[in-house]
């Protein structure tokens, strides 16, 4: 049976081995090897570097909570260098990845006097505002950064955030009310003219048919009226959710556009 140090008593925990595992996509195992290296060589610069790399591997394995804990090992050593700044930034990024946008903003606010990572953290906080659809706050936070910083990303994002404030919106309430008045009108309001036409024909056909057949075939007319009523309700509710989806789609389109075009995405900073 092999001992913990590996075959022949030699340490298997070399950064080179961990690097190889990381490059092969074995992120969990790579993180373990980095941590092993860090604990076998405690207290030095190499250990801090290994902790940082372990955090990166855990991030790649989508284990953000564990990654933040490992990055804390780098920042808690008391050394205020660029590696500590990078770890600080990556901790905030793990909050971002988990959708904890308020924590990102609070973290950036706490570190605003930290010269090693204040600007990147503000950049990330601005992205958090942007992702949270608070476009005015995003614009003003991006605006505080130098427009040329992060390969001109800040300047670009100011423009995109401004665009976000003028996204076309549709009121779900208005869409539902319009559809209640005239079946399909709410869909047309959201730009779905084809759906609007189908809705109008379906509801008008069924309710009109029920009205026309009321005297001749009462039971068939009642069936048609019930179906028409259900389609009428579906048309109103469909317009309501359609308007909500219209708004959501616009936000998502803008976010996709920003991520595709921005020169430096948040996760690309300090990506050692």
């Amino acid at each position: 049976m092999l001992n913990a140090a590996g075959p022949g008593g030699l340490s298997s925990a070399t950064p080179g081995f961990a690097e190889k595992l990381d490059s092969l996509g074995e992120y969990d195992r790579a993180a373990v090897e980095y941590l092993r290296f860090a604990y076998e060589n405690p207290g030095g610069e190499k250990a801090r570097w290994a902790f940082f790399r372990a955090g990166r591997s855990l991030e790649r394995a989508n284990k953000f909570e564990q990654a933040a804990a490992v990055y804390n090992e780098v920042t808690s050593s008391g050394v205020a260098d660029s590696l500590a700044g990078a770890a600080c930034y990556r901790i905030a990024l793990t909050y971002f990845s988990r959708g904890r946008l308020n924590d990102v903003i609070a973290y950036a606010d706490d570190a605003r006097f930290d010269t090693t990572c204040a600007d990147p953290l503000n950049y990330l906080a601005a992205w958090a505002y942007f992702f949270g659809r608070d476009y005015p706050a995003a614009e003003s936070t991006f605006f505080l950064l130098e427009p040329e910083s992060f390969d001109s990303s800040a300047g670009f994002m100011v423009t995109v955030s401004e665009k976000g404030q003028y996204l076309p919106r549709r009121s779900p309430f208005l869409a539902a009310s319009m559809s209640a008045l005239l079946p399909g009108a709410g869909k047309a309001y959201c730009g779905r003219w084809g759906d609007a036409l189908v809705n109008l024909v379906a509801v008008a056909g069924m309710l009109g048919g029920a009205y026309a057949l009321w005297e001749d075939d009462r039971s068939f007319a009642v069936g048609l009226a019930i179906s028409g009523g259900i389609f009428y309700g579906g048309n109103i509710y469909g317009s309501y959710v359609g308007a909500r989806w219209f708004n959501e789609e616009k936000h998502r389109e803008l976010y996709r556009y920003a991520r595709e075009r921005v020169p430096k995405r948040p996760e690309e900073l300090y990506d050692y």
């Binding site: 084809g194 759906d195 189908v198 379906a202 309700g233 579906g234 048309n235 509710y237 469909g238 959710v241």
Partner: peptide
């Protein structure tokens, strides 16, 4: 009730224009 409305709305959205949306 919500499911019924969603299902009926889906039936009306499944039309020849759907390929544009």
């Amino acid at each position: 009730l919500k499911a019924l409305f969603l299902a009926v709305d889906r039936l009306t959205r499944d039309n020849s224009f759907a390929k544009y949306y």
